[in-house]
Design a protein around this nucleic acid. Sequence first.
DNA 1: TGCGAACTTGCAACGAGTGCAAGTTAGCAT
DNA 2: ATGCTAACTTGCACTCGTTGCAAGTTCGCA
Lengths: 209, 209
Amino acid sequence: MRYAEHMPSPTLRERKRNRTRQALLDAAVELFERKGYDGTTVADIAEAADIGTRTFFGYFGSKEELLFPDSARRVDAAVDAIANRAPDDRPVDVLLRALRDVAAPAGQPDDMIDRLARLRLRLIRTVPAVRGRALQVQLDAQRAIATHLGQAYPDELDELTAAALVGAFVGAINGALLALLDSDDDDADPEHVRQRLQRATDVALRPWR
Amino acid sequence: MRYAEHMPSPTLRERKRNRTRQALLDAAVELFERKGYDGTTVADIAEAADIGTRTFFGYFGSKEELLFPDSARRVDAAVDAIANRAPDDRPVDVLLRALRDVAAPAGQPDDMIDRLARLRLRLIRTVPAVRGRALQVQLDAQRAIATHLGQAYPDELDELTAAALVGAFVGAINGALLALLDSDDDDADPEHVRQRLQRATDVALRPWR
DNA sequence: TGCGAACTTGCAACGAGTGCAAGTTAGCAT
DNA sequence: ATGCTAACTTGCACTCGTTGCAAGTTCGCA
């Protein structure tokens, strides 16, 4: 598929680097949960991970980036989903599968990842800076997906239509999800929520099918 | 309609305040154009408007806010458009009119507003912080419109579906616009841009007609 | 065993944003 | 007019995110 270069961590340096990176993530999640996002400084996180404050920025470009550590991998997964389409797939089918991979990338369920996901969701709702960053990450993913989808169906989708299509789907899901989040009858039934979401986006996107 | 309280600027204080606010906006636009967004400090802007740096934050909550000075008015216009719908309008029709009002609020064309709009578009493309803020403003507008649209058609749209629908529309337009903007790099002619925007929304919204 | 590249770190600095306290000024009732 | 109050302005000191720079340290590899 193409993640061959991530599997073996051969060099010592690389292993150390990964360990430090993970330590930063763990420390950040723990501190954000305990003292809140704004109540936690980058210096706190660095100290908890036992590195110099300055060094933090060699690992993450900003404080917010800690909350979206795997955005690149997710986009890759979506792009792969487009590349590996079946010959008789329609653009909409491919897009739906790609979007599923962005939302929940393949891999064994991991406690720490789940914890991060929940934390992220809460912070997106409550911290403007985090919300802003989330929207930017989403936009980047959207752009990448649109480009690849357009290239996958050059005859049926010009660049513009591909971008509009992807925008509509992402926007619909995003809007529904947002509404769900701030009409706070929150996370009761994960399955029930999924169905409501499915129904809402189905109605909204019917014209595109 | 409901902007009665904005027309007369009776009190001296209020007039002065408006003047200072406008001076800040003018200074900001001029400086951003001349020295770039990141090359301009809040202190620069305050000095150019002849007020103390500290006072700036009594007028705008942040540097980015300077670029979205009328966001509240725009949302109001969209909400009004929903309230003043014709009895036989379909949700989609209403939504279209509301979105048109967000994009270009009614009022006589103003040079300074046009200049600001162009500057904003350029900075959204080039400055991440501005892009993030723009997305947040858009999201807020989306939320307000979805709520009111849902209330206007309580029988046909539940909150969730309304949110998904609005999200799909906005997402489609946004996606198309984005593609258009970063495919071609020109932005000079105001009329050319308008046509381009028209074409993008046409493509984006075709499926709904 | 070295040598160069990559990494770490402290320091100084800049800019956004905020709380506070002291001074001004406009609005308004008398 | 007079004076009281609320609103506004401002400087100061401070926190925090972020960056450039100039050491020093460590690793990979020939």
